[in-house]
Nucleic acid binder design. Structure first.
Lengths: 104, 104
DNA sequence: CTATAGATGTTAGAATACATGACATAAGAA
DNA sequence: TTCTTATGTCATGTATTCTAACATCTATAG
């Protein structure tokens, strides 16, 4: 009944922090460094998917190993399937209005 | 990496309302009528799983057909595998502290 | 027809959660 | 040492959720 549970953005940051063991501060910081891209609601709240959580866990592991976020980003960009779907592009535009250092 | 995405209680009521199209009032009411059992955080917030959402959608369909919640409950109890896992029982005890008409 | 019960809307007030921005700081890198 | 990175913490404001209460509408029982 539900499409791609893994990709659906449904969790708020508090829940994500609880599941991943990361602080909200860390999660927001990794977003600022473009390691993750949560959905933004009309009022500015972040929503994450299980997929995002998996990604965050991987990020956390690397960070603990001493890898810098800029390096992790490069790794992600290298690994990631370079074909971004139209849907994702549109969402990117919507989200950009809320990204870090953006207007409110 | 994550166990049983479908069963993990991670969504807040607003998200559930958005996905199901039901009002928060309705969702809480169905809980009061024991049709669903969200998890309760330490501070009293409800958390739902994708499985809960599927159940809510089924409930909504029946309600629209004019079926009363008491009948829907019986249907659910009849359909449900009567073996409740230990884990669920324990969660039930935890949650009972927050159930409708409970103390705060 | 009237009274009751079921389902849902709406509102009020309190508590919790989340957002952003700023300041602090420890550990490394330059 | 000085700058950068990563993170903690705090302040302030908005958003979300919670419970309880009251209103309303519909269907059913009497």
């Amino acid at each position: 009944m539900i499409e791609s549970l893994r990709e659906k953005k449904v969790m708020m940051i508090g829940t994500v922090a609880e599941i991943t063991g990361l602080s909200e501060r860390q999660i927001r910081y990794y977003e600022q460094k473009k390691l993750i891209s949560p959905f933004r609601t009309a009022t500015g709240n972040r929503k994450y998917s299980f997929s995002d959580i998996e990604k965050l866990i991987e990020i956390a592991e690397k960070v603990e190993e001493g890898v810098r976020t800029s390096e992790i980003l490069e790794d992600l960009n290298r690994t990631e399937k370079s074909s971004i779907s139209n849907k994702e592009l549109i969402q990117g535009q919507i989200n950009s209005h809320f990204r870090q250092s953006g207007k409110r």
